[in-house]
Amino acid sequence: MTEAALLEVENVTKVYMVGAGVTALQKVSLAIPQGVLAVVTGPSGCGKSTLLHLMGGLDRPTFGDIRLAGTAYSSLSAARLARVRRQEIGFIFQQFHLVPELLAWENVALPMFLMGKGRREAEKRARHLLQRVGLAGRADHYPYELSGGEQQRVAAARALANEPRILLADEPTGNLDSQNAAQLLDLLEEFHRMGQTLVIATHDPYVVERAQWRIHLKDGQLREVETFP
């Protein structure tokens, strides 16, 4: 494994206990350095989302381990892992997953509230982040008042709320039209230029061609890792 790796996946296997058991990932190992824009790509059902969930500590591997900045997930209790997830990892999901009862800025501020930040401080940063994603004027709107593209940008701002070490996005453009998808990708690239490490699970070729790292999966196995300058 690379010493400078931010995220290390060590011989990870994930078996879902459905019926006789479904092996979603098989002995996958890779190391993602800090500051890269990586995509995990492959056909549907190849294990992209599973790998992302394991990287983000949303799920535990059946075998193997994952390390973020040297900390092995297997050594953490559920509560500690949740704290690491909250503090060190930002998530963007295909379905946006914004809390419908909270305003856009409150959705962005929520992870900060969870970290114990005061309302004033959290609101100030949330509004700043929304400005960064081009939604300054939509901060006081509920999710249902926003378009799909706007909701996903709010989700992106929320993912950055606690200044995570790594940002994981699971098919972030999957529910967006091409214009909104391009807008979101521009945003993610901007995050990357600012030094953010990103891992995106996608099968969108437009996203893949922008990545420095291309991690190809097939049938739950790592087939190839391509790197570009």
Binding site: A82, R86, F93, L110
Partner: peptide
């Protein structure tokens, strides 16, 4: 809303 809360980083016990 609980999926959304989980996405925002709320832990299982919370």
């Amino acid at each position: 809303r609980y999926g959304a809360l989980a996405a925002a980083g709320v832990a299982g016990d919370e």
